[in-house]
């Protein structure tokens, strides 16, 4: 089954989509596609078949999202915790992923036509090498596309992602690119796997479970969470509409909370900068208390320097990540 589904919505769906689009729409939706195995059990089919149907549903959902003007989708495909499942099932899932990424590469013309950029978030080192190379190839091939974005979380947990971001910042400190005092909420966000995406506006979990299971904990702190009881392979256009409607009901209050958080952030950064400048002046000052104007100048100077440091560090980090994928890809070609 293909990644990209052509085809229009039917009349009723189109009307409903247009009504919904009259309100505020989420730009980025995240899915926890739960319930494939329960679906297989319910229908008396093989577990692998359940996962297969789950993938097909993802392709269908992407089509709906396109028609609803949702440009970005993030899905939880495989958690690091899932490695605990039976070897049989893990192997089956890896095999399925391999097939799907091969299929994706076959469809590259179609992906280009629709401008689909595919990103894979997670620690690829945990995966078999051939799958790593396939993923790198898919990511590098679709990198320049910019109409819609699909982020696949594979070998991912949110705690691991946050820890990895801390590790990257510590690497920056080791390299002398940034100082420990430059570490901030904004910088940590920039070091996450998801640094190229805005935070999701809406997170949907199917199959009636009411927890996040270590998915995008950092990014969804001000997102609308919708838990739906339908199993993922049975997800319908109307379920998606219901979730969007719930987002629209929440939109105003969540936006307010986000703005408030943003203001707090800016204030904290200013305070941190002030503290750093004060410390610097104490060490290097000539004993005289600095007047307000000099302090203001020093603060401005410090802020510009900090921003430059962070810019350089983020560029170095981006380069490091890009070359990781490029190396994997070129290794794949040689092999």
């Amino acid at each position: 089954m293909s990644w990209i589904r052509e085809g229009e919505l039917n009349l009723l769906e189109k009307i409903s989509a247009n009504i919904l689009k009259a309100g505020p729409m989420p730009k980025h939706v995240a899915f926890i596609m739960d319930g494939n195995r329960r679906f297989a059990r319910k229908k008396n089919m093989e577990r692998q078949e359940g996962h297969m149907q789950g993938f097909n549903k993802l392709a269908e959902t992407l089509r709906w999202c396109k028609h609803l003007n949702i440009q970005e989708v993030t899905v939880y495909a495989f958690s690091i915790e899932n490695f605990k499942r039976t070897k049989n099932e893990v192997d089956g899932l890896m095999e399925l992923a391999k097939k799907k990424f091969e299929k994706l590469l076959e469809e590259r013309d179609n992906l280009e036509k629709h401008g689909v950029c595919v990103r894979v978030l997670g620690d690829l080192n945990m995966l078999p090498l051939d799958l790593q190379q396939l993923i790198a190839k898919a990511v590098v091939t679709t990198k320049a596309h910019n109409k819609c974005f699909l982020n696949v979380c594979f070998a991912y947990t949110s705690r691991y992602e946050i820890t990895n971001a801390v590790r990257e910042m510590a690497w920056g400190v080791e390299q002398g690119l940034i100082k420990a005092s430059d570490v901030s909420e904004a910088l940590l966000s920039e070091c996450l796997y998801s640094n190229n995406s805005p935070n999701p506006d809406l997170l949907i979990r199917t199959s009636g479970e009411v927890r996040l299971s270590d998915f995008l904990l950092w990014q969804t702190s001000h997102s609308c969470l919708v838990f739906q009881s339908v199993l993922w392979p049975e997800y319908s256009f109307w379920n998606l509409c219901e979730a969007i409607l719930q987002y629209q009901l929440n939109h105003k209050s969540i936006q307010k909370a986000r703005d408030l958080h943003g203001e707090d952030q800016a204030l904290l950064q200013l305070e941190a900068d002030r503290a750093c400048v004060a410390e610097h002046m104490q060490h290097h000052g000539n004993g005289k208390p600095a007047d307000a104007q000099r302090r203001q100048e020093a603060l401005l100077h410090y802020t510009t320097c900090r921003e430059e440091r962070i810019q350089d560090f983020l560029e170095a980090l981006k380069h490091k990540r890009d070359s990781y994928f490029n190396d994997l890809w070129s290794d794949g070609i040689l092999a």
């Binding site: 947990t157 969804t220 702190s221 001000h222 969540i254």
Partner: peptide, 20 residues
Amino acid sequence: GPVDSTLGFLPWHIRLTEFI
């Protein structure tokens, strides 16, 4: 309350938390 969000509640700690 009517808002369906965690509104910044301890992101690190709610990995396996059930929300009701």
